[in-house]
Design a binder for these strands. Structure first.
Length: 492
RNA sequence: GGCCCCAUCGUCCAAUGGUAAGGACACCGGCCUUUCACGCCGGCAAUACGGGUUCGAUCCCCGUUGGGGUCACCA
């Protein structure tokens, strides 16, 4: 059997290190077997998918050093590789399922579904899914309602009893009662397929042999194997990778850790070190060596050797490893070259210079004023973050809400940053100055600094958000409970 | 809460049905050194608990506990 693996990111946000993790293992497994690695963009969520995110993901994957044999940018024999370009294919398959009575149109409104769900939770029902109201609608009635223009989705018919049994290459046999699964939507009201339908159709059509992805998908596998059965197809081999964790063991998230690949890039990590580090999450070289390349990995990797304990993403070990690459694999000349690639290039230097130019009395002042643009973190103290007449807790809230708002800025520039900060200040009924004060501290690590908004623009979103989060830690951080409350109040 | 997955130092990764349970990061000491870092040497530190199976279990089985994931017209 030809080994074909794929990475199927959804372009809905920053490129995530977890994506790189899955990409690495998928890529390596394909190459171990002389097979192909495919990149497919899963943009079936029209509201959240953006082209900018897709570009960013491809770009950071390239930076990290993962290459793909087929994908939206390079094409290939199984294209198109962007799901939004494959709508007619899905439509055909959905119609086939309806025809065979494996799926049915559902006219329930979002409001009704919310109500049903709420009631089930209140009643502490074991099953909190859809109540299958439309499952037995007559085809005639359904047809009429569709013809009359009523909005509908398509759901698949999950067996009402019995159990689903499937294999995971790392865990062996996994079983799950059908009764615990509700009639999953496979086509949304906008005519787009949901993930579940699209992933099955594409993996089959693209002849994917091994599905290597995060553990969070295990509970969806029954729906997928059922779809394979409906279509009469052979399911691929499933391999669910352990999830990367925050230090508190929860799923790696940007709340608690920088997760964007771009952050690591901007913070001065080498791609080969990042990849190497990711490779030792759940896997090790046969001889136990900790420094190894993707090539080394390909020579001795086996999917079955992955260990299942969910690894904590430990930045200090990554830092150590990165240090080894820097000092062991680079001459001074090579290092200089890398530095130039990283930040000491004319473009970045001129951006930085523009921000500080008016403050220079000698050329040598430049170094003093620009250090913050060439470092990862910045020295922050409680004092730097203090706002007059405001309690520490309040400052924390202010910073947290700022991070949330900044996360949503799509076009990262000084004007956009300014309007976001102004908005936050207004929400808190504060003068802008009350907000920019602690931000100077968080972002610049000093009261003496170039203009904030411009500096933030130059620094980039990832570094800014990470620095603000780090500053919040200096103030003691926000408790989970409080965070939830705050989220309810301010996060939109 | 239902269901699913998981369980060796604080963290990452080893090990065997019989071990002094090993390496790495972090941490702590020391050496080197004008400082720091690197490097070197040393130290601290783990088989979650309870039952079985077995002559013997960290390893196999069951339960408990703990952790995580998942229950969307998000992926």
């Amino acid at each position: 059997m030809k080994v074909r693996t794929r990475l199927a990111p959804s372009p809905t946000g920053d490129p995530h290190v977890g994506t790189a993790y899955q990409a690495l293992f998928g890529y390596v497994w394909a190459k171990v077997n002389g097979g192909e690695f495919v990149l497919r963009i899963e943009d079936t969520d029209q509201d959240r998918s953006t082209e900018a995110s897709e570009v960013a993901i491809l770009d950071s994957l390239r930076w990290v050093g993962i290459t793909w044999d087929e994908g939206p940018d390079v094409g290939g024999p199984f294209g198109p590789y962007r799901q939004s370009d494959r709508l007619s294919i899905y439509r055909k398959h959905i119609d086939l399922l309806i025809e065979k009575d494996h799926a049915y149109p559902c006219f329930c409104s979002k409001e009704r579904l919310d109500g049903v769900r709420k009631k089930l939770i209140e009643d502490k029902a074991p099953n909190r899914g859809y109540d299958r109201k439309c499952r037995n609608l007559s085809p005639v009635e359904a047809g009429e309602r569709i013809a009359s223009g009523e909005s509908y989705v398509v759901r698949m018919k999950i067996p009402l009893e019995g159990e689903c049994l499937f294999q995971d290459i790392l865990r062996g046999e996994i079983t799950k009662d059908w009764a615990s699964i509700d009639d999953q939507v496979i086509m949304k009201a906008d005519g787009f397929p949901t993930y579940h339908l699209a992933v099955v159709v594409d993996d089959h059509l693209m002849e994917i042999s091994h599905i290597i992805r995060g553990e969070e998908w295990i509970n969806s596998v029954p729906k997928h194997v059922l779809l394979y059965k409906f279509f009469g197809w052979e399911p691929p081999v499933y391999c669910h990778l352990p999830l990367l964790r925050n230090p508190d063991k929860s799923k790696l998230s940007k709340r608690k850790n920088p997760t964007s690949i771009n952050y690591y890039r901007k913070a001065g990590y080498l791609p080969e070190a990042l990849l190497n580090y990711l490779g030792m999450m759940g896997w090790h070289m046969p001889d136990g060596s900790e420094k190894f390349s993707v090539k080394d990995m390909i020579e001795s990797f086996n999917l079955k050797d992955i260990s299942l304990g969910s690894p904590v993403f430990d930045r200090s070990k990554l830092r150590w490893l990165n240090g080894r690459y820097i000092r062991e694999d680079n001459s001074v000349d090579q290092l200089s070259e890398k530095l130039q690639e990283w930040a000491l290039n004319p473009e970045y230097i001129s951006k930085v210079t523009e921000v500080v130019a008016s403050r220079l009395e000698t050329l040598a002042d430049w170094g003093y004023f620009t250090a913050m643009f060439f470092s990862d973190s910045v020295p922050v103290t409680e004092e730097l973050l203090a706002v007059k007449d405001m309690e520490c807790d309040k400052v924390l809230e202010l910073l947290q809400v700022t991070v949330w708002k900044l996360e949503k800025v799509r076009d990262w520039n000084s004007t956009a940053i300014f309007s976001v900060l102004k908005e936050v200040a207004e929400v808190f009924e504060l003068k802008l100055k009350a907000l920019t004060g602690p931000l100077y501290g968080a972002i610049c690590g000093s009261k003496i600094a170039p203009p904030l908004f411009d500096s933030m623009e130059v620094l980039g979103s990832d570094l800014c958000r990470t620095r603000i989060t780090a500053a919040m830690d200096v103030l003691g951080g926000i408790s989970g409970k409080k965070l939830k409350k705050l989220e309810k109040k301010y996060r939109t």
